[in-house]
Nucleic acid binder design. Structure first.
Length: 760
DNA sequence: AACAACGGGCTTTTT
DNA sequence: GCCCGTTGTT
């Protein structure tokens, strides 16, 4: 068995375990994917039918790669019949197949986050609730977490605890919104992301024959990234595996970073309860990183309380220390990191694809983009606005969606007046009102005004009827025409293509190109389907499109570029040289995570994930002040920097030791040339003002006068006069105070610069 | 009904 | 600083 030879002892044991429940706890870089693929190959070699394997991965890309690797081990294309993909895509297919049982059309629409948010917004409006109180974001996450815990609208209403939580947050009507939301999704023939799991649970709960069928089909189940599954996913897997209990879950509790979307570490504990005789395998040897990186990462994660005991080690070389860089501003951070990349690349002849810049929030990408572009280095940003979330792409796809399912109200609202065809807000409001009165969909109204009369101008009525006719003609071809033909036809006859073509601005040109790219993608899809002797309709194309992400798209290109992405998006990836940027308090760890220990521990795991992406070098950076909300604000180095064991760290660009220094005397002013560079940043009026304050900073600052400043203290400023402290942010030399001065109003001051004296 | 101008909120992280 | 939605103007 040649393929077993390349595995270490614990890997091999995990791979060779065939029947019965098992859990693999896999440290970062320990060959987890390897174990998964080899185990599947091993199952196939030992006579398991590929049709009976269910493998749930975290991304579609991971599934695709795994299939390829299995084929290369087993030979042929045996992996073709394995059911492999993300929870969402696998169960979306199963739901389509069984949709009629739940009262949904098999071509139900999948609402993305934007769609559901917009639906929630309109419900809040229709209910006459205050949109400031019932913020769509907050309501959405409330509904989402209810669904992820399998709480139906009725159960929600009946749940004393939940309802009182809503009352306490002054949003007692959420249950009504949830009810209406669920109703409207159903009426529109639409499921949101959470529904794909929720409704699967309903299907398996209410239809024992369906449950039985899939239990018999999926005799072997594997779940990757088990630590990131939520309750809804957990229960699906548990039900499917209930008969044979050939279930293998793989994960690393130290890398659980998705609790904000309902992921639940308890699933690991539940596993032990559900399958008391399970076998546990630990993969602890790291093959990815230098020992400095492995040890540094260990020193970080050991600070967390909640974790499964394991000992990740490596026999790799020691490597360089983790480099920590301090910069003055986010723009300088961009330049410094870019130069570093350039130097390393020249120095050791690395490829661009060997580098990754990882950040906490998407908004941080800007300064790196700018400096990379200046130096003409190729880069690719993952995440952020994905290709499929761009306005023009969503517009065209909305036409497709509407043609496949005219009840899809979010799609209808999106395109009924795009491109402009003279159907304005007033007319649409009347139609919406009428639709609610008749309790039918918007489509029903605009496609049959005879039956559902609406008091709008005959002009508007005609235009809507024309629009409806157009959609109907598309619908007629939906199941018969090849995807590309229809897509192209829609793009042209809807007027989208012309509208974008006429826009000669740079953005307009890009949008036009994006549409062309989408059409090219559909063409490719059509061709692929024809090779399989299938027609490949637009309807088929739509099935997957809602669940595609940029990461899935990237595989084909495989370009040699520098990678920019959030740490979340980097999970499962590895790079020789990793730069983790923006290590500042309130950014990483995020301000919103500071309220509880568990949330802070999740941020720490995120940091752990980031560090363990690195193979050869890992560099951390932080800045003294950064643009946030369009304003330059001072920042403080992240606590995570201090949490890395000093043995594995070296500081660069440091003008001072940054240990514990509470006193202002430890702070050194930036050198002259730095101060200049600082002033040249940005250039807006606001910065100039901030800069003036900064450069006019007194060297003295009376070491200690404001050290024990507290909220409520009265202070005096030599320009603003007397005032009262209303808030304090940060600590040490970067502490800021918000002070209310009766003479000039409220000001936020950086204590090390402002000449404040405490008065009684 | 269409467009320009203005203002508010926002930043976690994603299927 | 940016995106979105609202307001005011034609």
């Amino acid at each position: 068995m040649d393929y077993l030879d390349g595995l270490n002892e614990s890997q091999r044991q995990a791979v060779e375990h065939i029947d019965g429940p098992m859990m693999v706890i896999a440290g970062a870089g320990s060959g987890k994917t390897r174990v998964l693929t080899y185990r599947i190959a091993h199952l196939l070699r030992n006579g398991v039918d590929s049709f009976s394997i269910l493998a749930l991965t975290f991304t579609n890309k991971a599934a695709k790669e795994m299939k390829e690797r299995i084929n290369s081990i087993v030979g042929g294309n045996e992996s073709m019949n394995i059911t492999m993909g993300t929870f969402h895509s696998v169960f979306a297919r199963i739901l389509r197949y069984n949709a009629d049982k739940l009262g949904y059309p098999s071509n139900f629409t999948i609402y993305d986050t934007q769609d559901s948010r917009s639906l929630i917004k309109s419900i809040v409006k229709e209910f006459g609730l205050d949109e400031k109180v019932y913020k769509s974001n907050a309501v959405q996450s409330r509904i989402s977490s209810a669904k992820n815990n399998l709480i139906s609208p009725n159960a929600y209403e009946a749940n004393v605890e939940i309802v009182s939580e809503d009352r306490m947050s002054r949003k007692p009507e959420i249950f009504r919104i949830y009810k209406e939301y669920a109703k409207r999704c159903f009426q529109a023939g639409a499921m949101d992301f959470d529904d794909l799991l929720y409704q699967t649970n309903v299907l398996l709960r209410d239809f024992p024959d369906v449950l039985h069928f899939y239990q018999q089909k999926f005799k072997y189940a594997l779940v990757d990234e088990y630590q990131d599954t939520n309750y809804s996913q957990y229960l699906i897997v548990k039900k499917l595996a209930a008969v044979y209990e050939n279930i293998c879950v793989v994960g690393d509790d130290a890398q659980s970073i998705y609790s904000f979307r309902g992921a639940n570490i308890e699933n690991i504990l539940n596993f032990k309860k559900d399958y008391p005789d399970f076998k546990m395998f630990k993969l602890e040897q790291n093959y990815r990183s230098t020992s400095n990186i492995v040890n540094a990462a260990n020193s970080i994660i050991k600070r967390n309380k909640d974790q499964i005991q394991k000992d990740v080690w490596t026999s790799n070389a020691e490597g360089g220390k983790i480099n920590i860089i301090r910069c003055l501003t986010d723009n300088e951070e961009g330049r410094v990191i870019t130069n570093k990349i350039f130097d390393i690349k020249q120095g050791e002849g690395a490829d661009y694809k060997d580098f990754a810049i990882l950040y906490r929030t998407n908004a941080q990408s800007r300064s790196f983009e700018e400096s990379l572009r200046k130096l003409n280095l190729p880069y690719k940003i993952y995440g952020g606005l994905s290709f499929y979330q761009r306005k023009e792409i969503k517009d065209l796809i909305a036409y497709f969606r509407l043609s496949a399912n005219p009840k899809d109200e979010e799609a209808l609202k999106r395109v009924i007046n795009y491109p402009k065809r003279g159907i304005g807000k007033t007319s649409m409001d009347s139609v919406i009102l009428a639709a609610r009165q008749y309790d039918v969909s918007l489509w029903d109204v605009i496609s049959d005004f005879q039956r559902y009369p609406v008091s709008i101008s005959s002009g508007a009525r005609n235009k809507m009827a024309q629009f409806a006719l157009k959609i109907q003609s598309y619908s007629a071809q939906m199941e018969t025409s090849p995807a590309y033909d229809l897509a192209n036809n829609v793009a042209q006859s809807s007027g989208i293509l012309k509208d974008l073509y006429d826009d000669k601005s740079p953005e307009g040109v890009t949008r036009y190109e994006n549409i062309q790219e989408l059409l090219a993608g559909i063409k490719e899809f059509s061709v692929q389907q024809e090779e399989k002797d299938e027609i490949g309709t637009l309807s088929d194309f739509l099935i997957d499109v809602a669940l595609l992400t940029d990461a899935d798209k990237a595989t084909e290109e495989d370009k040699n570029t520098i990678t920019l992405m959030t740490i979340h998006a980097s999970k499962g990836l590895e790079f020789p040289h990793v730069f983790i940027v923006g290590l500042e308090e309130n950014l990483f760890p995020s301000q919103l995570s500071l309220t509880s220990r568990t949330e802070l521990e999740e941020e720490r795991r995120l940091f752990y994930v980031a560090v363990t992406r690195a193979e050869k070098t890992c560099t951390l950076s932080y800045v003294v002040s950064r643009y946030r909300w369009g304003q330059l604000v001072t920042a403080e180095p992240s606590r995570f920097i201090d949490e890395v064991d000093k043995k594995f760290v070296s500081h660069e660009n440091e003008t001072r030791g940054r240990s514990g220094g509470k006193s202002l005397s430890g702070y050194q002013r930036p050198s002259e040339e730095r101060t200049q560079g600082f002033g040249m940043m940005g250039g807006g009026k606001r910065n100039l003002k901030t800069m003036k304050e900064a450069t006019s900073a007194p060297a003295k600052s009376g070491g200690g006068t404001t050290d024990n400043l507290k909220v409520g203290f009265n202070v005096e400023h030599d320009r603003f006069g007397k005032g009262k402290v209303t808030a304090l942010v940060g600590a040490g030399s970067d502490q800021k105070a918000t002070v209310f001065f009766p003479r000039v109003g409220q000001k936020t001051l950086i204590l090390k610069f402002a000449k404040l004296t405490i008065v009684e």
